[in-house]
Write a protein that binds this DNA or RNA. Sequence first.
DNA 1: GGTTATATGATTGACCCCAATCATATCGTT
DNA 2: AACGATATGATTGGGGTCAATCATATAACC
Lengths: 261, 261
Amino acid sequence: MRVPLHIVESRREKLRGLIRTDGFLPVAEICSRLDVSEATARRDLVAIAANGHITRTYGGALADYNASFASHGERATRARTAKDRIAAAALSVFPATGTVFLDAGTTISALTRLLLRKRRDFAGLTIVTNGLAVATQLGGARGLELNMLGGTFLHRQAILLGASAVRTLASWQFDAAFLGGEGMDAGGISNSHAEVAAFQRAVLRRCSNSYFCLDVSKLGRATPHRVAGWKDLGKLITDATPAQLASAGIPLKGSHLVSAK
Amino acid sequence: MRVPLHIVESRREKLRGLIRTDGFLPVAEICSRLDVSEATARRDLVAIAANGHITRTYGGALADYNASFASHGERATRARTAKDRIAAAALSVFPATGTVFLDAGTTISALTRLLLRKRRDFAGLTIVTNGLAVATQLGGARGLELNMLGGTFLHRQAILLGASAVRTLASWQFDAAFLGGEGMDAGGISNSHAEVAAFQRAVLRRCSNSYFCLDVSKLGRATPHRVAGWKDLGKLITDATPAQLASAGIPLKGSHLVSAK
DNA sequence: GGTTATATGATTGACCCCAATCATATCGTT
DNA sequence: AACGATATGATTGGGGTCAATCATATAACC
């Protein structure tokens, strides 16, 4: 029998919370806790997985604050996704030692994953991040010194931000910084959160080499808060072709571009 | 056919790394990546799960840096563990609003889990933590302001520590702090890491009410680094009986003890 | 208020996961 | 060198999971 929409939505919201709280939830337990049939539980799961930050697994669902989960989707199909290609390109310019800042975000998370797979020992490398997923992934890597900036937790993105984060930043100097973004157009790179943009600008001031990693889907999209114009930032790592970039009015060439093909 | 022991161990070490990197790994993929049969993959999994930090799920294995996973084990058996009882007792003294510090560690993680299950809205409450698992669990809770201290990542414990963490602490004042520990005896509470102990002492200086949460298995155990003597700390929340505490030489009564039974 | 759209639960057949068992090859040990 | 221990892979039966289909009751819409 049909049920009011607000009931459906609130149930799914509750399920989102349950999965987030437990980290992993088997289908059977979803049924008993929400008192619904398997069919409904599964349907809710796919609904949440579609736009929520949840990954389905065989027999249940996994909260992917650690967006590192890529087994079923990306890797199984063997099709290297745009993010993976970008990660590979970023890896080629990744310092072997020194101090590196890593942004939050799924693109950077792909880089982290690749980094862990390619290198066995990280002695001499210091990584600083404000992303919970990145920290979670890198924590425990052999020889790596991992630092996290403090700050206020930004809902839905698992990022630490705010005045405290910017203040802590002041004591660091980075050899390289790898950053993400939500939009790139003729004017530069932009983000949807004012705080994120402000934070990234603060990072830019403290690094000698900056690499923005954005896939082609962000091309031409402008989001409210501008991070920096093309003149003010370092290199762009993208899978967009030079032709695509040119037609979007982005004036980058060679030395400011690392192409991921 | 049998295979040399060092091969077995190195393969399992590699598997540990894979699971940690990916967050979740289906059995089928373990087979293809390690080039072993399902049987061996499963056997390796149980071997790792026995003493490594891995949780088996149906169809694969989950890296449990987020110690929040408790569906199969604790909850399924319905047996309220010591940690759960302590968490329930802690919840009874948990402020409805204000600023609360939460330590890292599995006992506190149990408290976090319970907190999320019991309360729907956290408006007016600010939580500060240095534990990745706690932050991961609480991130996204409705109305909650969540702050994380920055610092250096401590291997194996997913805690942020060090001078930076202590420094950030200086700008906070807590209405309550819930802390864990590794040992309690007549002399007080102790921890195995010097940095952890130093950090906890710094927290104690900045809170009006402190609650140490330790289960009875820690009773009588003394670890190298003393956090504080019984006179210097607030209340103890434990499932140990007053008789057990007395026989261990711990001079606490009523007002300094919250019993979890 | 009548009609349409849809959320739900039951069912079914196929597929996958798992624990147990067994034969075998080879490592460790004496 | 010979023996025992054991890590491995194949097999098998049982059970769980999944996607698809269908009937139905009821919310949403006009």
